[in-house]
Amino acid sequence: MLSRVAANLYWFSRYLRRAENLARLVNVGSQLQLDLPRSMRFAWRPLIETLGAADEFDRLHPPGEKQPDEAGVIRFLLVDPENPQSLHEVVRQARELQRSVRETLPQDCWIAINDLYLYIEASTDRAGSRRYRQEFLDRVIDSCLRVSALLTANVSRDIGFQFLRLGTAIEQADMTSRIIDTAAAGLIQPRSEEDAEAFREMQWMSVLQCLAAYQMYRRHLRQRVSAELALQFLLKDRQFPRSVLFCLTRIQGILPLMPARRPVQLALNRVLGSVFDADPARVLQTGPSVFMDRLQVELDALDGALRQSYFPN
């Protein structure tokens, strides 16, 4: 397998998974907003930061000047051509990557991703409006899952497939940790300490929903949602496929199928160790963002080791 092709497969599956998570994140934000009393506001800022688009946002809307309304923020996150992290841009990248590895993936995948891209292009005007947003985001999530399903159902389990799986796993681990970070930063701007307490639970519920984890959480933990248990579930659950630990364990299973590279194994061991050792209660006490920042750095190092080992240049 050519390094370039492996790299493109890896990035293709990362962008695909990123697009899906991005759509979920915006969806849950919109939903949560509808449930909030008038006295409270949904804070979009942490969400923009989570997606790594804060610099671009500030450049377009300098702090202190008039800030865009909700529809404007949503448009920025989904379809603004000025935002290199927008959903539109992420899907465009996935499509370009797929185009360059067309000979290695099934034709259906190309048709599906092309269809999604054209749908987003055609919907840029409507994506901001509340009325169509739900429909738009559902369609995006469905299309992403459809491509994933085509890959799982129809692609031979060769080394190229392992790079697709690696990309998906590392992107989900990364996105899950980012979304936890957002929740910790506070999605709701309360007026009083009392309000904050009341909506804390709601906030973690949203995060679970965002990662399609709420139902599984209830089924497996059979308890009401608490910050500590939600964190435990999203970080360390061994069975839920979007938990950080699950994704890392999956990577551990893939590595023996690839040419052995010591730096990759070391980087994985390190981040796995951090997740194993994490105690949710303590993480909450010290402020989750400290822990999540470290996790992000270690995931970055794993990504770097993978790239350096299998596709340098």
């Binding site: 050519l2 390094s3 240049n313």
Partner: peptide
């Protein structure tokens, strides 16, 4: 970009195996 020529004048492609 997938190919390079070494000092031995042999042409190589960069793969995930080296």
């Amino acid at each position: 970009g997938d190919l390079f020529v070494g000092d031995d004048d042999v042409c190589y492609m960069s793969t995930v195996y080296g």
